[in-house]
Amino acid sequence: MSNISEALYNMRFMDDLARRNTLVHRLHPLAKLASTLAFLAAVVSVERYEISGLLPFFFYPVIVFALAELPIKPMVKRILMVEPFIIGIGILNPLFDQHIVMLGGVAVSRGWITFLSIFIKCGLTVAAALILLATTGMDRLASALRMLGIPKLFVLQLTLTYRYISVLLEEVGRILNAYALRAPGQKGIHWKSWGSLAGQLILRTFERAQSVYGAMCLRGFDGEYRTGDGQRFCTTDLAYMAVWVMFFIIVRFVDIPGLLGLVVTGGIK
């Protein structure tokens, strides 16, 4: 049950964030989508033994967080919630690669370096995906997909799924409550009710889909999905996109922390 209310809360939370009005929110959805994809590609392409090359990428989430006025604590919590899975897979790295390397005079197993690299990458990529949604929202993201030439009917189906998730979550929640109230002390659904519980819900879902289809037909739906013109792509959008893509390219190929470190150590000595 807590799962369901959590999922519902999460969707509302992200929806609230996406409805804000800041510099980043006002940008064209395509500009944000392109920047996000460029960021992901750059981060993911970083070698697995490289940690320092990943660090400059932190500029992106930090700056966008600040510009879009996203709340740090709840977002970081969401990012960290995904990490356990990655830790589960990555934690085996130190076991399999116990080769020792020297890291600033300290002996470290190389497996830990690759593990750390995966851990950081996970944080960065998850942050980027959440930022995209929190500054764009599902409806504008869908319009960006249409502009990219994704078939309209697929986009319509995607937005329908998004729309009805909350309705279905609430319905499942009610069913589970009704079940739990009459099956005290029972964890999960007893196997005797497996088919009927979910099956009833499927039948009801089919009925609902039929009335949704009816509602669409009543308002002239004929298999063609017509949408508005969508936001215009202006120079600000282009600039935003270009600056980030340039930044990612530079950071990917120039070792900024290395240079920075050199400057500092050179200065100290």
């Binding site: 799924t161 009805y164 589970l176 964890k187 979910a198 879902t205």
Partner: peptide
């Protein structure tokens, strides 16, 4: 669309 939402929600059901 609606069945997608169903599968999404139904994955929250624990079948013991």
């Amino acid at each position: 669309g609606v069945m997608g939402a169903f599968v999404f929600a139904a994955q929250m059901i624990n079948f013991s």
